[in-house]
């Protein structure tokens, strides 16, 4: 197991490096840079000379390889640089927002998985009955409905039916958990629906498949209670493919948050991302992409670890 883990961790490094290189190149290929956007936004007449000077200040005049090496050195020493727009350290910009975004994402993931696994299981066990049909309609809707639309619907519902709207200013969890929850549960539900739907469908199909396996028949032939057949013999096997989906879909969840944060007027990473892109703030974009990549890779690692826990064949490899 340890060796298996060491190998997975070692594989993270080239993956992250690849992402960094790609992001770097893509950002430079796209025309336009932060200097132009910023100076034009300030209004007034902008001379080429001013542009050049500003570029030199931000280090944009150096050859690309040098810029890349600079950035990499920064990354390794955990110095993410300063935002090209606000001039504040990127770490700080991210730091103030990351708590909110992660809280929403984790809440969404947690609630979704908690709902999706039993839902998918029940749907599989009562296959082709009305229970199954209801679940399937629910999950297909989850795939079809965009999260921002669901978010707006939720807001509207709260407003018109309950005459209540979530608080506008962000309250950190440790200050007032209730108020914090009251605010964040709605975006969590909005982005989590799709997640739950995908996971539930995966769980359903893998349970159906696993229930046909020979070892399920063996368990029944031993006189094992049907509940235990499902919980002990089927679930662990069925969760293997589900775990993969849970991990991969987490990235989609973060993607969904980019828009949903706008809908709920939350100042999180998603909002920051949108702003960074619209301002061509390379440094910030790069940092955010690397952050996402790191989350993605970490999720993969967690999936691998879970695989090892669930499947002795992997553990002993």
């Amino acid at each position: 197991m340890l060796r298996y883990l060491a190998r997975r961790v070692a594989l993270m490094v080239p993956t992250l490096f690849g992402v960094a290189l790609l992001t770097f190149i893509m950002l430079r290929v796209v025309p336009g840079d932060v200097v132009e956007v910023k100076l034009r936004a300030d209004g007034g007449y902008v001379t080429t000379e001013i542009l050049e000077r500003e570029r030199a200040r931000l280090g944009l005049d150096k050859p690309l390889p040098v810029q890349f090496v600079d950035w990499m050195t920064g990354l390794v020493t955990l110095d993410l640089g300063n935002s090209m727009w606000t001039g504040r350290p990127v770490a700080e910009e991210i730091g103030v927002r990351i708590g909110l975004t992660f809280q929403v994402a984790l809440m969404a993931a947690f609630i979704s998985v908690l709902i999706a696994i039993p839902l998918g299981t029940i749907s599989a066990l009562y296959r082709d009955t009305w229970v199954d049909y209801v679940v399937r309609i629910f999950t297909i809707a989850g795939l079809a409905v965009p999260s921002f639309w669901l978010g707006m619907l939720l807001l509207l519902l709260l407003l018109t039916v309950f005459h209540w709207s979530p608080p506008v200013t962000y309250t950190p969890f440790y200050e007032n958990p209730l108020q914090n929850m009251a605010q964040l549960i709605w975006p969590a539900l909005a982005v989590g629906y799709r997640y739950a739907a995908v996971v539930a469908r995966m769980v359903r199909s893998s349970i159906i498949e696993v229930m046909r396996e020979d070892y399920i028949r063996t368990a029944r032939a031993k006189g094992v209670f049907e509940r235990l057949v499902v919980a002990r013999h089927a679930m662990r096997n069925a969760l293997l493919p589900a775990v993969t989906v849970i991990g991969l879909e987490f990235a989609f969840l973060l993607g969904g948050l980019v828009v949903t944060e706008q809908v709920f007027n939350l100042n999180g990473i998603g909002r920051l991302f949108v702003e960074a892109v619209s301002r061509n703030d390379f440094v910030l974009i790069q940092a955010l992409v690397m952050l996402l990549a790191a989350v993605f890779v970490t999720m993969n690692l967690i999936v691998d670890v879970l695989y090892g826990v669930l499947d002795p064949r992997v553990r002993n490899a």
Partner: peptide, 16 residues
């Protein structure tokens, strides 16, 4: 008790 044909698939791979 019943014993099945396929020994490779008749035992649960994830349980000891």
């Amino acid at each position: 008790a019943m014993i099945f044909q396929e020994p490779m698939t008749s035992l649960n791979p994830v349980l000891s």
